[in-house]
């Protein structure tokens, strides 16, 4: 049963998984990064406290984060169809992945930014820096190691979630594993897919941590 067709399918699956995870992480950050920064900035003790705004953002993030991904995937089908035309395949999976990843990313970003030493922010304020400058040059700059570690964690999580999308015909390695391993009892194909998912996760995790360590200047 191992023929060129299966091999090609698995290679396609690898690519689809990477594609989904990469784009979902990317779009997730497009939403989650600004929201996370906004949370850190508007929270009590931030550089521009705004309690009502923070409470609203905090509430939305909590709601979205408490919906299980599998449910969200199904709940979002009409929205996904409206946005990209289809509710299955790689394109159809990226939409719920982004919606699910964005609040998670926002929380990661918020906590990374809150780690920045308040004294350094105060120093920048004493130099006459505007809040916008402080966000760009101090908050994001000083938190960059923690942010990159965050990206690595988010990517691994999204990669795992993308496999779940196989349930609704989402494409990628997870889809193959479910279709062949679960529905057709071809455990060997499933095992290969799972091993590949593990290898992918490990690779990205290691690359992310290496990068984070390399750009960290806090060590003597």
């Amino acid at each position: 049963m191992w023929n060129a067709e299966v091999t090609a399918m698995i290679f396609k699956g690898i690519w689809e998984t990477i594609e989904m995870s990469l784009f979902s992480t990317l779009f997730g950050y497009a939403i989650g990064l600004p929201v996370g920064v906004l949370c850190a900035v508007t929270d009590k003790g931030g550089i521009h406290p705004n309690a009502p705004l923070y409470r609203v953002l905090d509430f939305i993030i909590n709601i979205l984060r408490s919906i299980p991904f599998l449910i969200l995937l199904i709940l979002l089908i009409p929205f996904t169809k409206m946005l990209v035309g289809v509710s299955y395949g790689t394109k159809g999976t990226i939409v719920p992945l982004v919606i699910s990843a964005a609040p998670f990313i926002a929380r990661m970003v918020e906590s990374s930014i809150k780690e920045v030493d308040h004294g350094v922010i105060e120093a920048a304020q004493s130099m006459g820096a505007s809040n916008w400058t402080i966000i760009r040059k101090v908050l994001l700059g000083e938190a960059r190691v923690s942010l990159i570690v965050g990206v690595t964690i988010v990517f691994a999580t999204v990669l795992g979630y993308s496999a779940m999308a196989g349930v609704v015909g989402g494409g990628g390695l997870g889809d193959i594993a479910i279709r062949y391993g679960y529905y057709r009892y071809q455990a060997d194909i499933m095992i290969v897919c799972v091993v590949l998912l593990v290898v992918l996760t490990q690779l990205f995790q290691a690359a992310g941590m290496r990068l984070a360590n390399r750009i960290d200047r806090r060590r003597a």
Binding site: G119, V120, A123, S126, E142, R217, R218
Partner: peptide
């Protein structure tokens, strides 16, 4: 503020 310099006990340098 940019005409008033300030230094601190904890130095507050940008570590990165």
């Amino acid at each position: 503020r940019s005409s008033i310099g300030m230094i601190f006990q904890g130095f507050n340098l940008l570590m990165q």
